[in-house]
């Protein structure tokens, strides 16, 4: 199967006035279309940095990054933004919904930026809200919802533009186990339908849903395990 994500000798440094920290050091990974990959490792190992670069939110300092056959390592913010739209959906630990917008409006936002026509927009937003079983709360504001409900809205927002890849950063981190379980099952379902999923997690249980686990330590890939080799 073809690669959707491929990095070659990816490097990222963080420099403050006194210290230079290597966040990512020669990262070489390949993720195939339709794969479900978990990235694990202790705090500060570079998981989120890698996810940000994969998600086109940040640029590496050196190395190559191929996203669906495009070399994007040196893309400008504008180019990255263009490419992100409709191709990548994000799910965050802290949901990151806009407080001033209702659930419906939060989910609608990516389609607005894609300039999707109003009737099409309405149809798709309602479709995903129904799928996430949150349609009955579409006019509520995020603060009026439980954590589980907020994360369902966030997932609805991530998939409404039908992206090829969903990047999830500790998607169950702020949820109780029952809600966390539902979120993981939902991601699995999306993956089964063909969406590539890259998830950063601390939870071995959540990682169990992935086909493959990439373990990072001090900015380096230390091991890569496929599901059959998981020893959890």
């Amino acid at each position: 199967m073809e690669n959707i994500i491929k990095t070659v000798n990816l490097k990222k440094l963080y420099t403050t006035e006194e210290v230079e920290t290597t966040a990512l050091d020669d990262i070489n990974i390949e993720i195939k279309k339709g794969e479900f990959v978990a990235i694990m490792g202790p705090s500060g190992c570079g998981k989120s940095t890698l996810l940000n670069i994969i998600g086109l939110l940040d640029n590496p300092d050196s190395g190559q990054y191929h996203f669906i056959d495009n070399e994007v390592a040196q893309y400008s913010e504008r180019q990255r933004s263009q490419l992100r739209k409709g191709n990548i959906g994000f799910v965050f630990q802290s949901f990151n919904l806009i407080d001033e917008l209702t659930c419906y409006e939060n989910v609608e936002l990516p389609l607005l930026y894609l300039k999707t026509p109003a009737d099409e927009r309405k149809r798709r937003v309602e479709e995903v809200l129904t799928r996430m079983n949150i349609m009955h709360r579409k006019d509520h504001f995020p603060q009026q919802l439980s954590g589980g409900q907020q994360q369902r809205v966030a997932i609805a927002r991530a998939i409404v533009a039908k992206p090829s890849v969903i990047l999830a950063d500790e998607p169950t981190g702020n949820l109780d186990s029952a809600n966390g379980e539902e979120v993981m099952r939902l991601l699995e379902e999306l993956n089964n339908e063909g969406t590539t999923i890259v998830m950063v997690t601390h939870s071995p249980h959540d990682a169990n849903y992935a086909h493959r686990i990439i373990n990072l330590f001090d900015g380096k890939v230390v091991t890569e395990n496929i599901r059959e080799q998981f020893h959890i």
């Binding site: 669906i68 490419l83 191709n87 894609l114 300039k115 998939i159 039908k162 090829s164 339908e193 063909g194």
Partner: peptide, 14 residues
Amino acid sequence: FRSSFLASNLYYPS
């Protein structure tokens, strides 16, 4: 949810 479109190729905004 039928989502054959989910795994579409690179998407550019209309």
